[in-house]
Protein backbone atom coordinates (compact mmCIF):
# COMPACT_ATOMS: atom_id res chain seq x y z
CA UNK A 1 0.00 0.00 0.00
CA UNK A 2 1.32 3.39 -1.00
CA UNK A 3 1.07 5.32 2.25
CA UNK A 4 3.00 8.21 0.80
CA UNK A 5 0.58 8.95 -1.99
CA UNK A 6 -2.48 8.35 0.22
CA UNK A 7 -1.12 10.88 2.69
CA UNK A 8 -0.08 13.46 0.12
CA UNK A 9 -3.44 13.16 -1.65
CA UNK A 10 -5.15 13.71 1.67
CA UNK A 11 -3.00 16.76 2.37
CA UNK A 12 -3.70 18.17 -1.07
CA UNK A 13 -7.39 17.67 -0.49
CA UNK A 14 -7.26 19.34 2.94
CA UNK A 15 -5.73 22.44 1.35
CA UNK A 16 -7.35 22.21 -2.05
CA UNK A 17 -10.52 23.51 -3.67
CA UNK A 18 -12.85 21.00 -1.95
CA UNK A 19 -11.81 22.16 1.48
CA UNK A 20 -12.22 25.80 0.37
CA UNK A 21 -15.78 25.19 -0.83
CA UNK A 22 -16.72 23.41 2.38
CA UNK A 23 -15.00 25.99 4.55
CA UNK A 24 -17.03 28.78 2.93
CA UNK A 25 -20.28 26.83 3.17
CA UNK A 26 -19.54 26.00 6.80
CA UNK A 27 -18.65 29.63 7.62
CA UNK A 28 -22.16 30.48 6.43
CA UNK A 29 -23.65 27.73 8.55
CA UNK A 30 -21.59 28.97 11.47
CA UNK A 31 -23.26 32.38 11.18
CA UNK A 32 -26.65 30.67 10.96
CA UNK A 33 -26.32 27.87 13.43
CA UNK A 34 -23.17 28.50 15.47
CA UNK A 35 -23.89 32.14 16.29
CA UNK A 36 -27.62 32.66 15.79
CA UNK A 37 -29.02 29.18 16.39
CA UNK A 38 -30.83 29.06 13.05
CA UNK A 39 -31.07 25.54 11.68
CA UNK A 40 -30.48 26.08 7.99
CA UNK A 41 -30.53 22.66 6.35
CA UNK A 42 -30.63 24.17 2.88
CA UNK A 43 -27.15 25.59 2.45
CA UNK A 44 -26.95 23.52 -0.74
CA UNK A 45 -29.81 25.68 -2.04
CA UNK A 46 -27.90 28.90 -1.42
CA UNK A 47 -24.87 27.41 -3.17
CA UNK A 48 -27.03 26.22 -6.05
CA UNK A 49 -28.79 29.54 -6.76
CA UNK A 50 -25.47 31.38 -6.74
CA UNK A 51 -23.70 28.82 -8.93
CA UNK A 52 -26.56 28.57 -11.40
CA UNK A 53 -27.07 32.31 -11.31
CA UNK A 54 -23.49 32.69 -12.48
CA UNK A 55 -23.47 29.75 -14.90
CA UNK A 56 -26.78 30.48 -16.59
CA UNK A 57 -26.04 34.20 -16.84
CA UNK A 58 -22.79 33.56 -18.67
CA UNK A 59 -23.38 30.28 -20.52
CA UNK A 60 -27.07 30.70 -21.38
CA UNK A 61 -27.64 34.42 -21.64
CA UNK A 62 -24.12 35.50 -22.57
CA UNK A 63 -23.78 38.10 -19.85
CA UNK A 64 -20.35 39.11 -18.53
CA UNK A 65 -18.83 37.01 -15.74
CA UNK A 66 -19.01 39.75 -13.12
CA UNK A 67 -22.66 40.42 -13.89
CA UNK A 68 -23.18 36.70 -13.36
CA UNK A 69 -21.52 36.96 -9.94
CA UNK A 70 -23.84 39.84 -9.04
CA UNK A 71 -26.86 37.85 -10.21
CA UNK A 72 -25.68 34.88 -8.13
CA UNK A 73 -25.43 37.01 -5.00
CA UNK A 74 -28.79 38.57 -5.79
CA UNK A 75 -30.38 35.14 -6.14
CA UNK A 76 -28.98 34.05 -2.77
CA UNK A 77 -30.32 37.24 -1.20
CA UNK A 78 -33.74 36.62 -2.70
CA UNK A 79 -33.71 33.04 -1.45
CA UNK A 80 -32.88 34.19 2.07
CA UNK A 81 -35.76 36.67 2.02
CA UNK A 82 -38.21 34.14 0.59
CA UNK A 83 -37.24 31.54 3.17
CA UNK A 84 -36.91 33.85 6.10
CA UNK A 85 -40.22 35.64 5.91
CA UNK A 86 -42.38 32.58 6.55
CA UNK A 87 -40.09 30.62 8.83
CA UNK A 88 -37.98 32.89 11.00
CA UNK A 89 -40.87 33.52 13.36
CA UNK A 90 -41.31 29.80 13.89
CA UNK A 91 -39.64 27.06 15.88
CA UNK A 92 -36.20 25.84 14.84
CA UNK A 93 -37.38 22.58 13.30
CA UNK A 94 -39.75 24.38 10.91
CA UNK A 95 -36.88 26.41 9.49
CA UNK A 96 -34.94 23.17 9.11
CA UNK A 97 -37.74 21.51 7.16
CA UNK A 98 -38.50 24.58 5.03
CA UNK A 99 -34.86 25.11 4.07
CA UNK A 100 -34.20 21.47 3.21
CA UNK A 101 -37.41 21.41 1.14
CA UNK A 102 -36.47 24.53 -0.79
CA UNK A 103 -32.98 23.24 -1.49
CA UNK A 104 -34.59 20.11 -2.91
CA UNK A 105 -37.06 22.13 -5.01
CA UNK A 106 -34.15 24.13 -6.42
CA UNK A 107 -32.18 21.01 -7.27
CA UNK A 108 -35.19 19.51 -9.07
CA UNK A 109 -35.86 22.74 -10.94
CA UNK A 110 -32.23 23.19 -12.03
CA UNK A 111 -32.12 19.57 -13.20
CA UNK A 112 -35.49 19.57 -14.91
CA UNK A 113 -35.80 18.73 -18.58
CA UNK A 114 -38.44 21.40 -19.02
CA UNK A 115 -36.01 24.16 -18.09
CA UNK A 116 -32.99 22.57 -19.75
CA UNK A 117 -32.75 25.44 -22.23
CA UNK A 118 -31.76 27.61 -19.29
CA UNK A 119 -30.02 25.32 -16.86
CA UNK A 120 -29.01 22.41 -19.05
CA UNK A 121 -30.95 19.63 -17.28
CA UNK A 122 -28.81 16.93 -15.77
CA UNK A 123 -25.84 18.03 -17.89
CA UNK A 124 -25.83 21.45 -16.30
CA UNK A 125 -23.81 24.30 -17.73
CA UNK A 126 -20.11 24.48 -18.57
CA UNK A 127 -17.39 26.93 -19.51
CA UNK A 128 -18.65 30.09 -17.85
CA UNK A 129 -15.58 31.07 -15.85
CA UNK A 130 -13.08 31.89 -18.58
CA UNK A 131 -12.91 35.48 -17.34
CA UNK A 132 -11.80 34.14 -13.97
CA UNK A 133 -9.07 31.97 -15.44
CA UNK A 134 -7.93 34.75 -17.80
CA UNK A 135 -6.88 36.63 -14.68
CA UNK A 136 -4.67 33.72 -13.62
CA UNK A 137 -1.15 35.01 -12.90
CA UNK A 138 0.28 31.47 -12.60
CA UNK A 139 1.67 30.02 -15.78
CA UNK A 140 2.99 26.71 -14.47
CA UNK A 141 2.26 24.18 -11.76
CA UNK A 142 2.47 25.29 -8.16
CA UNK A 143 4.63 22.85 -6.26
CA UNK A 144 4.32 22.26 -2.53
CA UNK A 145 6.79 19.40 -2.37
CA UNK A 146 4.42 16.73 -1.13
CA UNK A 147 1.86 17.64 -3.76
CA UNK A 148 1.37 20.19 -6.51
CA UNK A 149 -1.49 22.03 -8.15
CA UNK A 150 -2.01 22.75 -11.83
CA UNK A 151 -1.86 26.43 -12.78
CA UNK A 152 -5.65 26.72 -12.81
CA UNK A 153 -6.03 24.88 -9.50
CA UNK A 154 -3.35 27.13 -8.04
CA UNK A 155 -5.36 30.18 -9.04
CA UNK A 156 -8.55 28.72 -7.53
CA UNK A 157 -6.48 27.80 -4.47
CA UNK A 158 -5.16 31.35 -4.09
CA UNK A 159 -8.45 33.17 -4.62
CA UNK A 160 -10.29 30.61 -2.51
CA UNK A 161 -8.09 30.91 0.54
CA UNK A 162 -8.09 34.70 0.26
CA UNK A 163 -11.89 34.57 0.29
CA UNK A 164 -11.86 32.21 3.26
CA UNK A 165 -9.48 34.54 5.12
CA UNK A 166 -11.59 37.60 4.34
CA UNK A 167 -14.74 35.78 5.38
CA UNK A 168 -13.18 34.77 8.68
CA UNK A 169 -12.04 38.34 9.22
CA UNK A 170 -15.55 39.62 8.55
CA UNK A 171 -17.12 37.07 10.89
CA UNK A 172 -14.53 37.79 13.57
CA UNK A 173 -15.10 41.54 13.49
CA UNK A 174 -18.90 41.18 13.31
CA UNK A 175 -19.07 38.73 16.17
CA UNK A 176 -17.09 40.90 18.56
CA UNK A 177 -19.31 43.89 17.82
CA UNK A 178 -22.61 44.65 19.53
CA UNK A 179 -24.31 43.26 16.39
CA UNK A 180 -22.72 39.87 17.00
CA UNK A 181 -23.68 40.10 20.66
CA UNK A 182 -27.33 40.37 19.66
CA UNK A 183 -27.00 37.27 17.44
CA UNK A 184 -25.37 35.23 20.20
CA UNK A 185 -28.07 36.38 22.59
CA UNK A 186 -30.77 35.27 20.15
CA UNK A 187 -29.12 31.86 20.05
CA UNK A 188 -29.36 31.71 23.85
CA UNK A 189 -32.88 33.02 24.32
CA UNK A 190 -34.70 35.09 21.79
CA UNK A 191 -37.51 36.12 24.14
CA UNK A 192 -34.99 37.76 26.43
CA UNK A 193 -33.60 39.74 23.50
CA UNK A 194 -37.09 40.73 22.43
CA UNK A 195 -37.89 41.91 25.95
CA UNK A 196 -34.94 44.30 25.70
CA UNK A 197 -36.35 46.06 22.66
CA UNK A 198 -34.40 44.34 19.86
CA UNK A 199 -36.13 43.37 16.65
CA UNK A 200 -35.25 39.67 16.74
CA UNK A 201 -36.84 38.91 13.38
CA UNK A 202 -34.74 41.53 11.65
CA UNK A 203 -31.52 40.22 13.20
CA UNK A 204 -32.35 36.64 12.26
CA UNK A 205 -33.02 37.80 8.72
CA UNK A 206 -29.69 39.63 8.60
CA UNK A 207 -27.95 36.49 9.87
CA UNK A 208 -29.77 34.32 7.33
CA UNK A 209 -28.74 36.65 4.52
CA UNK A 210 -25.13 36.94 5.69
CA UNK A 211 -24.74 33.17 6.04
CA UNK A 212 -26.45 32.74 2.68
CA UNK A 213 -23.87 35.07 1.11
CA UNK A 214 -21.06 32.84 2.38
CA UNK A 215 -23.04 29.92 0.94
CA UNK A 216 -23.12 31.81 -2.36
CA UNK A 217 -19.34 32.22 -2.26
CA UNK A 218 -19.06 28.47 -1.70
CA UNK A 219 -21.36 27.88 -4.68
CA UNK A 220 -19.25 30.17 -6.89
CA UNK A 221 -16.03 28.43 -5.91
CA UNK A 222 -17.53 24.98 -6.51
CA UNK A 223 -18.80 26.05 -9.93
CA UNK A 224 -15.64 27.87 -10.94
CA UNK A 225 -13.19 25.20 -9.84
CA UNK A 226 -14.70 22.70 -12.25
CA UNK A 227 -16.05 25.20 -14.84
CA UNK A 228 -19.29 23.27 -14.56
CA UNK A 229 -22.55 23.15 -12.62
CA UNK A 230 -24.60 19.98 -12.42
CA UNK A 231 -27.61 19.44 -10.16
CA UNK A 232 -26.15 16.47 -8.29
CA UNK A 233 -23.37 18.70 -6.96
CA UNK A 234 -25.98 20.56 -4.93
CA UNK A 235 -27.74 17.61 -3.28
CA UNK A 236 -28.85 17.71 0.34
CA UNK A 237 -25.84 15.75 1.52
CA UNK A 238 -23.51 18.65 0.79
CA UNK A 239 -25.30 20.64 3.50
CA UNK A 240 -24.92 17.82 5.99
CA UNK A 241 -21.25 17.34 5.14
CA UNK A 242 -20.76 21.05 5.72
CA UNK A 243 -22.49 20.66 9.10
CA UNK A 244 -20.14 17.79 9.89
CA UNK A 245 -17.18 20.00 9.03
CA UNK A 246 -18.56 22.81 11.16
CA UNK A 247 -19.13 20.56 14.16
CA UNK A 248 -15.70 18.99 13.76
CA UNK A 249 -14.00 22.38 14.01
CA UNK A 250 -16.43 23.72 16.57
CA UNK A 251 -19.61 25.75 15.99
CA UNK A 252 -19.57 29.32 17.23
CA UNK A 253 -15.82 29.73 16.75
CA UNK A 254 -14.42 31.91 13.98
CA UNK A 255 -11.91 29.36 12.67
CA UNK A 256 -14.02 26.32 13.54
CA UNK A 257 -15.51 25.85 10.07
CA UNK A 258 -12.15 26.29 8.34
CA UNK A 259 -10.29 23.83 10.51
CA UNK A 260 -13.28 21.51 10.34
CA UNK A 261 -13.40 21.60 6.54
CA UNK A 262 -9.68 20.83 6.33
CA UNK A 263 -9.95 17.91 8.75
CA UNK A 264 -13.07 16.68 7.00
CA UNK A 265 -11.42 16.59 3.59
CA UNK A 266 -8.21 15.17 4.92
CA UNK A 267 -10.14 12.31 6.49
CA UNK A 268 -12.42 11.81 3.49
CA UNK A 269 -9.53 11.55 1.06
CA UNK A 270 -7.35 9.58 3.43
CA UNK A 271 -10.05 7.03 4.20
CA UNK A 272 -11.11 6.87 0.56
CA UNK A 273 -7.53 6.23 -0.52
CA UNK A 274 -6.88 3.77 2.26
CA UNK A 275 -9.93 1.62 1.70
CA UNK A 276 -9.73 1.64 -2.06
CA UNK A 277 -6.12 0.52 -2.06
CA UNK A 278 -6.88 -1.97 0.72
CA UNK A 279 -9.65 -3.43 -1.41
CA UNK A 280 -7.70 -3.35 -4.64
CA UNK A 281 -4.63 -5.14 -3.27
CA UNK A 282 -6.98 -7.61 -1.57
CA UNK A 283 -5.91 -6.71 1.93
CA UNK A 284 -9.62 -6.99 2.50
CA UNK A 285 -11.17 -9.90 0.58
CA UNK A 286 -13.45 -9.00 -2.29
CA UNK A 287 -16.39 -10.80 -0.67
CA UNK A 288 -16.24 -8.40 2.24
CA UNK A 289 -15.44 -5.28 0.30
CA UNK A 290 -15.42 -4.65 -3.41
CA UNK A 291 -13.95 -1.52 -4.98
CA UNK A 292 -17.28 0.27 -5.03
CA UNK A 293 -17.98 -0.69 -1.46
CA UNK A 294 -14.56 0.63 -0.49
CA UNK A 295 -15.58 4.05 -1.74
CA UNK A 296 -18.63 3.98 0.55
CA UNK A 297 -16.86 3.23 3.79
CA UNK A 298 -15.83 6.82 4.31
CA UNK A 299 -19.43 8.00 3.97
CA UNK A 300 -20.55 5.43 6.51
CA UNK A 301 -17.86 6.78 8.80
CA UNK A 302 -18.99 10.36 8.17
CA UNK A 303 -22.48 9.43 9.37
CA UNK A 304 -21.19 7.64 12.43
CA UNK A 305 -18.72 10.44 13.06
CA UNK A 306 -21.42 13.12 12.91
CA UNK A 307 -23.46 11.20 15.47
CA UNK A 308 -20.50 10.67 17.75
CA UNK A 309 -19.44 14.32 17.52
CA UNK A 310 -22.89 15.57 18.40
CA UNK A 311 -23.21 13.14 21.29
CA UNK A 312 -19.75 13.23 22.81
CA UNK A 313 -18.11 16.47 21.69
CA UNK A 314 -20.77 18.96 20.58
CA UNK A 315 -18.24 21.73 21.15
CA UNK A 316 -16.00 20.33 18.39
CA UNK A 317 -12.73 18.54 18.81
CA UNK A 318 -10.89 21.60 20.11
CA UNK A 319 -13.75 23.49 21.77
CA UNK A 320 -14.27 24.39 25.37
CA UNK A 321 -17.30 22.65 26.80
CA UNK A 322 -18.44 25.72 28.71
CA UNK A 323 -18.69 27.73 25.54
CA UNK A 324 -20.56 25.18 23.49
CA UNK A 325 -22.97 26.87 21.20
CA UNK A 326 -25.64 24.25 21.16
CA UNK A 327 -27.46 22.83 24.07
CA UNK A 328 -30.98 22.44 25.31
CA UNK A 329 -33.55 23.12 22.68
Amino acid sequence: MDWGSIFSNAMASALGPDAIVYALAAIGLNVHFGYTGLLNFGQAGFMAVAAYGLAASVATWGLPFWVGIAIGFGAALLLALLLGVPTLRLRADYLAIATIASAEILRLVFGSVTLSDWFGGSNGRQQFADTFYDLNPYSSRLDFGLFSFSANDAWVFTVGWVLVALSCLAVWSLMRSPWGRVLKSIREDEDAVRSLGKNVFSYKMQALILGGMFGALAGFMLAIKQQSVIPTDYATDITFFAYTALLLGGAGRVLGPVIGAMIFWFLMTFLGGFFSSAASIDLIPDVVMSDIQASLVRFILVGAGLMALMIFRPQGIFGDRREIAIDGR
Binding site: L39, D93, T244, G303, A304, L306, I326, R329
Partner: peptide, 18 residues
Protein backbone atom coordinates in the same frame (compact mmCIF):
# COMPACT_ATOMS: atom_id res chain seq x y z
CA UNK B 1 -31.29 18.70 23.45
CA UNK B 2 -33.75 18.38 20.61
CA UNK B 3 -31.60 20.24 18.11
CA UNK B 4 -28.65 18.04 18.98
CA UNK B 5 -30.83 14.94 18.58
CA UNK B 6 -31.99 16.22 15.21
CA UNK B 7 -28.38 16.43 14.07
CA UNK B 8 -27.69 12.98 15.50
CA UNK B 9 -30.58 11.73 13.38
CA UNK B 10 -28.95 13.27 10.30
CA UNK B 11 -25.74 11.43 11.09
CA UNK B 12 -27.74 8.25 11.57
CA UNK B 13 -29.44 8.78 8.21
CA UNK B 14 -26.11 9.21 6.42
CA UNK B 15 -24.77 6.16 8.21
CA UNK B 16 -27.73 3.93 7.38
CA UNK B 17 -28.05 5.08 3.78
CA UNK B 18 -24.44 4.30 3.01
Amino acid sequence: GLVAMMIVSIGFALFLRN
